[in-house]
Computed example of a mutant assay.
Amino acid sequence: MIPENAKKALDAWVRAAGPIGEKLFGNSDAHWSDIRASYMDALDGQFPAVDGVTFEQTELGGVSAMMVTPREVVDGRTMLYLHGGGYVHGGVKAYRGLTSRYAQALKAKIYVPDYRQAPEFPFPAPIEDAVSAYGALLESGVDPRSLVFSGDSAGGALVVTTMRKLRDAGTALPAAGVAISPWANLTHSGLSATVRDGLDPLCSVQFLDILARTYLAGELPTHPDASPVFADVHGLSPILIQIGENEVMLSDAIHLAANLGEARVRTSLEVWPEMFHVWHLFAGILPQADQALRNAVRFLDDALAAAASGA
């Protein structure tokens, strides 16, 4: 059961996303930059940062990024966090609340690339920027054994796709990754896209279809770089997938976990009853968000310890 204060926060998030839908469906003349800025401001106000964490603007491989630093950082721990937003309407400012909690709990410095987005910069621009940001971290001296990935929605899929790109380039992989509500299949062909459409107020199949078309700009949704359920995922680092049971993306997250597991990637899957898309943003408001974030931190803690010991 979702408490009343969480319901109010969810309603506020839906209202903040309203202008995005209007723009996508051709009912607004507003510029994307203004729509994104307004949306980021709304989410930043709804899900504020916790005390004891600082934020700075920096650059990683030519990509603007937000650097999130808690009071204590253990053994050079670093996270690359890949934000959501359908590759169209996301931005780093909306994630000050979630990343500050992540940084504090994991005792890690977090970098959030402000990657290019469609329609100005369609597929594969966000992937290229994520790879560039990771390369810049390695060039700066960050040890990949002390580095982890996390991301939500589109960023959850980017966790897997970025690892694949690094693997193919022969680049050392991070210790592990956490994919939160990953948008892993842009065909939306999983059963949950039919039977759960309408349960989650944040993501309908109609909304996701137009986001996918905007991002892909003519590329097929079955392209493995767009939909990691169709990709060769052998040789990746351990990955935790967390998905809400009410999400239209549920079946595809399960498909992604199966694809990883069958490729001998150490994979953990958590399905959270009644949870909606990226409920982790509600940490401090919703007990299930706090617990899911604790589980993610525990998974990454274990992976970092194993990487440090050479296991």
Rank of each mutant, 00 (worst) to 15 (best):
K8R: 14
A305Q: 10
G170P: 07
G156M: 00
G284R: 08
P119T: 09
T194K: 14
A311I: 13
D129V: 11
I285R: 11
R77C: 10
M67I: 04
V92A: 15
F123T: 00
S309C: 00
H234V: 05
G21P: 00
G151H: 05
I2P: 07
P119M: 10
E59M: 13
E245G: 08
G156I: 02
Q291N: 08
G62S: 08
P119H: 08
A307D: 07
G235P: 09
A307K: 07
P221T: 04
L211F: 12
Q206Y: 04
A12K: 08
P224A: 04
A169Y: 01
Y111T: 04
A175E: 04
R167L: 06
P182L: 08
N295H: 10
G91N: 07
A130Q: 05
A125S: 15
E247R: 02
S28F: 09
N246V: 04
Y39G: 04
A136W: 02
M275V: 03
E59K: 14
A42M: 06
T162Q: 01
E59R: 15
V142Y: 10
L186K: 03
P238N: 13
L216H: 02
A17S: 12
L137K: 01
I241F: 04
A65Y: 09
M275F: 06
S251M: 07
A17N: 12
R264Y: 11
M163I: 06
W183N: 09
A296S: 14
A6T: 15
A296F: 01
F149V: 08
A258L: 10
V73W: 10
